[in-house]
Simulated assay, not measured.
Amino acid sequence: MSQIDALVVAFPEDAERADVTQIVTTLNEMASGRESLQEFLGAGLNGRQVAQLCSAALSLNIDWVTPEQLILDDESGIPDEQKAAWGKFYGVVEGFQ
């Protein structure tokens, strides 16, 4: 969230065009509790699954994203280690469904 906030501060016009405020609001609501995460995933999670998901999420970052990429939903330029980290994260999520 701090990386997104930094983008908003650095590029307020781009952030407004990309509706980043709504994205941040949604992410904050999802982060507010386990029930909201379960609702988002459409599945109940046990403690082990929550731990798996949190572990996979720790290696994710968006510090490579430019405002233009955020607006265009453009993932070009994503470092290889982040491709792998996002792949692992999505694999964990898909394993719950």
Rank of each mutant, 00 (worst) to 15 (best):
T26W: 10
E75G: 11
L45D: 06
I4A: 14
Q22L: 12
D14H: 15
A84H: 07
V93E: 03
N46E: 13
Q49C: 09
V24W: 01
E75K: 12
S36Q: 13
G91L: 00
A15K: 05
L72T: 10
S55E: 07
A6Q: 14
E68H: 13
A84G: 06
D80A: 15
A6I: 04
V24A: 09
M1S: 10
N28I: 03
L53I: 04
L53G: 07
A43Y: 06
P67F: 06
L41N: 00
I23T: 10
S55L: 03
L7S: 08
A31L: 08
L70C: 03
I78R: 13
A10C: 08
S55W: 00
E29C: 02
S32L: 02
I4V: 08
F96T: 04
Q69H: 05
V65M: 15
Y90W: 06
Q69R: 14
E29D: 13
T66L: 07
N46M: 06
G33P: 01
W64V: 03
T26A: 13
W86H: 11
N46T: 11
E16W: 07
A31F: 01
V92T: 08
E81G: 14
G91Q: 02
A31V: 03
L58A: 03
Q38S: 06
G91S: 02
L37D: 02
E94M: 00
L53W: 01
A84D: 15
A6R: 14
Q22F: 13
L41V: 04
E94L: 01
C54W: 00
D73M: 13
A85G: 11
S32D: 04
Q52H: 06
M30H: 05
G91I: 01
Q3R: 10
V20D: 03
A43G: 05
N46R: 12
E68R: 14
A18M: 05
T21A: 15
L27C: 06
G47L: 10
Q49N: 08
A6Y: 07
E39G: 09
T66E: 05
M1L: 06
V8Y: 00
N61E: 12
D14L: 14
V65W: 12
G87L: 01
G87W: 01
W86S: 13
Q22H: 11
A10W: 07
D5H: 04
G44F: 14
E29M: 06
S2A: 09
R48S: 14
V24K: 06
I23C: 08
F96E: 02
G95C: 00
